[in-house]
Amino acid sequence: MVERRAIRALILTPAREVLLMRIRAPQGGDPFWIAPGGGMEPDETQEQALKRELAEELGLLQFDAGPILWRRHHTFNWGERRLSQREQYRVVHVDRFEPVMSDEVEAKVFQAFRWWPIADLARTTERVTPKTLAAILDAYLSVGAPDPLPEEEVLVD
């Protein structure tokens, strides 16, 4: 079991859209939509890791990281490895832009980017992770960042 820390960005536009990436796990299975971001290097802060990940995965260089909205401890298979990943999801407000994938490793599982209207997330039949993403974003846009943060979601696949 590989233990890993990860940081993800909930990238929001003024038009209430969120940027997600469609990927497929290296071992196959149905594709799913995730927030950009990924594993943190041992010596990185959250901010450093988020800047690196968003530059590599989106070409996004200028942004301010907002508050943490959600946390998850996810245990899952990724290729030949079993990961125990603790994730934090931070909000990032931006104007809409055209993302460009430049991460060679991520590009192997990447399929598409999509700016999702937040209202569409709750009724989509496509697989979106986290499953409660629409509710997380609706709550943030209605009342702001949670204080205190809710308990970390635990998910084992």
Rank of each mutant, 00 (worst) to 15 (best):
R4D: 07
R5N: 12
A9F: 10
L10Y: 05
I11A: 03
L12R: 02
L12Y: 02
A15Q: 15
R16D: 06
L20S: 04
L20F: 06
M21K: 02
R22A: 10
R24W: 00
R24A: 02
P26V: 09
P26F: 09
G28C: 07
G29Q: 08
D30C: 06
D30F: 08
D30T: 09
P31Q: 03
G39E: 14
E41H: 09
T45H: 03
Q46E: 13
Q46D: 14
K51M: 05
L54N: 01
A55Y: 06
E57K: 13
E57W: 04
L58M: 12
L60C: 10
F63G: 04
A65N: 01
I68K: 11
I68P: 04
L69W: 05
R71M: 13
R72T: 13
T75A: 13
N77C: 06
G79R: 03
G79I: 02
G79P: 02
S84A: 11
R86Y: 13
E87L: 05
E87S: 14
R90I: 08
H93A: 12
V94Y: 07
D95T: 14
F97M: 11
E98P: 03
P99G: 02
M101N: 09
S102W: 03
E104T: 10
A112T: 02
F113C: 13
F113K: 12
F113R: 12
R114A: 11
W115F: 12
P117D: 01
P117M: 00
I118L: 14
D120S: 15
L121T: 04
R123A: 08
T124D: 10
T125C: 05
E126M: 06
R127Y: 08
T129E: 15
T129Y: 13
T129Q: 14
P130L: 03
T132I: 12
T132N: 15
L141W: 05
S142W: 05
G144I: 04
A145W: 02
L149A: 06
P150W: 01
E151Q: 14
E152R: 10
E152D: 03
E153I: 09
L155S: 10
D157G: 11
D157S: 12
